[in-house]
Design a binder for these strands. Structure first.
Length: 154
DNA sequence: GCCAACGTTGGC
DNA sequence: GCCAACGTTGGC
């Protein structure tokens, strides 16, 4: 099983929205590295740290689980969609998404500042400068540590 | 709003 | 293939 961190802007799609919907398709990723993770490495049952970026506060707000493996991101073909990609061929999808299901919302956000202050997490990608990937792999020990900080069961 | 970091584009 | 220009991300 693999562990991941996925970023969403709170006002775009929040953990509360995911809780209400139960599950969602993770559309709109237009970065090849992130695409490759979703296409090649994400498997059903993988665990996800749900991260709010550009929010107050920013940090990990809960957990989700991968419930459908990589398939074409159909929003790339929709001219009305914010993430429309005119270069994507209809029969050869460039962009891939997965579905994730709500697992739990933390009682309190584990803030980025707290992640940075925890020496056990210094090798975690999200705390490193310039790390902008919206889908990134996480080590099991880091995943467990974030859960511990949240007072949540992994 | 600012700006550093990084990815992508396109001229050559 | 190089690299400057530009666009985006995302913390602060």
């Amino acid at each position: 099983m693999n562990y991941w961190l996925m970023k969403s802007e709170e006002h775009e799609y929040s953990i509360d929205q995911l809780k209400e919907d139960g599950h969602t398709h993770w559309d709109g990723v237009r970065n090849y590295q992130a695409r490759n993770f979703m296409r090649d490495d994400m498997k059903i049952g993988d665990r996800v740290l749900y991260y709010h970026s550009n929010s107050k506060p920013t940090g990990v707000v809960g957990l989700a689980t991968v419930c459908r493996e990589g398939y074409p991101d159909f929003t790339a073909w929709d001219p009305k969609d914010k993430h429309f990609d005119p270069k994507t061929q209809k029969d050869a999808p460039t962009w891939i998404m997965v579905d994730i299901a709500f697992d739990q919302k933390f009682d309190a956000c584990v803030e980025l500042a707290a992640l940075k202050a925890n020496a056990k997490l210094e090798e975690m990608k999200v705390v490193q400068r310039g790390q902008r990937l919206s889908v990134q792999p996480v080590e099991k020990k880091h995943f467990n540590e974030v859960c511990r900080m949240a007072g949540a069961k992994p």
